[in-house]
Simulated scan of single mutants.
Amino acid sequence: MSREDLLGGLSAVATQGQVRQISYEQLHRASWQPRRSFPRDSLLALARSVRREGVRQNLIVRPSPQQPGRYEIIAGERRWRASAPDLAATLQLSVDEERGLTGPPPRTLPCLILTLDDQDARRLSAVENLQREDLDAIDEALYRLLLIQDVLGDRPHADPDNASTLAQTLGRRLHAIRNHPEQHGDERTRLETLFASLGTMTWESFVTNNLPLLQLPQDLLDAVREGRIAGRSALLIHRQTDPALRQALLTASETGASFQELRRLVDDQQGKRWKGLAADVRQNLGTRTLERLDDQRRARVMRLLEQLQDELQGSRS
């Protein structure tokens, strides 16, 4: 299914829009827009291009529902940010970097103005942004959630900054649909159609592998957004309960370690932990130690030892 099929009737609406130049100050980001990651170096490179050649692709906007006389950006926020008059201060550019910005920022940007309701604006924004290759894993998951909310008829969450709450709210429903297919046949069909249109993964895979990213703690969430670690590695780090191991994995990942290398570090650490535990148990299983226990505790230890012996013998068979 093509992008036009996914957008449905919006393709016809887009052909009826009006293109005009709009000043930077008249534009603003959408409050529901989930994308938060705009890598500094990439934005600076785009700003240099904008200063030399202008904005070559139309932004997609609509009349602002909250701010009369202004326009809400549906797609093209990165181009708008790169055109900012105060870009040097915002990005904290060095003197050399600022010299590389030849020419003034554009005073106006070319915009395609569409008349869209909230639902259609979110759908168009999600589809347009999911075509991009520079989305981080967190933003991609959030845009997919926007489309899931659309096809399931859910009211969008009011706070896109709170990724964890958003994932919990919709995640419960998605888990119910996955775990009880006999009760959610129509919803499953809609999800399957949506993800077939988007490609790259099934909706079940999204629930298992991508949705958990939105519930990462803030330090790992920021690291994924900033491109310092991969989403898969962040989930592995998050599962570790040993603070020292967690920090070692984070440091290794930020310096370029692959997921497989992190997995080996975890396995090595678990092996050391097992050896240490076995040594402690051997030391505490002396006859004198057992004799010092009262009858009830000694009986409990003996039962545990018998269970352990059964498990170890079973592993050899």
Rank of each mutant, 00 (worst) to 15 (best):
E77S: 01
I73S: 08
Q215E: 07
R36Y: 09
Q283Y: 04
L198N: 07
A82F: 11
I177F: 13
D150Q: 03
E133T: 13
R3Y: 04
D267Y: 01
I177V: 15
T200W: 08
A47L: 08
G100I: 03
E306D: 09
R173E: 15
I237K: 02
S253Q: 05
L116S: 10
S205C: 10
L130W: 05
T202M: 12
L43C: 11
V224E: 11
R81H: 09
Q26R: 13
L93H: 13
L250Q: 07
G54T: 01
L101M: 06
E311K: 13
A12I: 01
L146H: 08
L312D: 02
H157Y: 10
Q67S: 15
R99H: 00
Q313E: 15
G271Y: 07
S125I: 05
V224F: 12
Q149G: 15
A176I: 14
Q131G: 14
D86Y: 07
L101T: 08
A47Q: 07
P110R: 01
G76N: 12
E25V: 10
A75F: 07
F206R: 04
A167Y: 06
Q183C: 04
E306W: 08
L142G: 03
T115A: 15
E187C: 05
R51Y: 02
R51V: 15
R239T: 14
I237W: 06
L142T: 05
G100N: 13
L265N: 04
Y71D: 09
L290D: 06
Q183L: 14
R282K: 05
T15V: 14
G276I: 02
P110D: 11
L6H: 05
A126I: 10
L174D: 04
L213N: 09
S197F: 09
R178M: 05
Q66A: 11
R132H: 14
L221W: 04
G8A: 00
Y71F: 15
N284E: 11
A252W: 00
D41Y: 12
P212C: 08
Q313K: 10
R300W: 02
L166K: 12
E133F: 03
E306V: 09
R79A: 15
D294N: 14
T193R: 11
R107W: 14
G100S: 13
I177D: 08
F38H: 13
E306C: 02
D242F: 02
L194P: 03
S317N: 03
I113E: 08
P181R: 07
A196K: 03
P85Y: 11
A14D: 07
L147T: 01
I177H: 04
W274D: 02
D96Y: 12
Q21G: 12
G256W: 00
R263E: 00
R122V: 06
R228S: 09
M302P: 06
L216K: 11
D267R: 02
R303W: 08
L152F: 14
R51H: 12
Q307A: 06
A248P: 00
D159W: 11
Q313T: 00
T255Y: 13
G171K: 07
Q66N: 09
Q270P: 07
L145M: 06
L214F: 12
E182S: 00
A230C: 02
Q215G: 13
R40G: 12
I177C: 04
E72W: 01
L304P: 11
P85I: 02
T251V: 03
G227C: 13
L6T: 14
K275A: 11
V207S: 12
L290I: 10
G276V: 07
R292T: 03
E97L: 11
G271C: 00
E291S: 10
R178L: 15
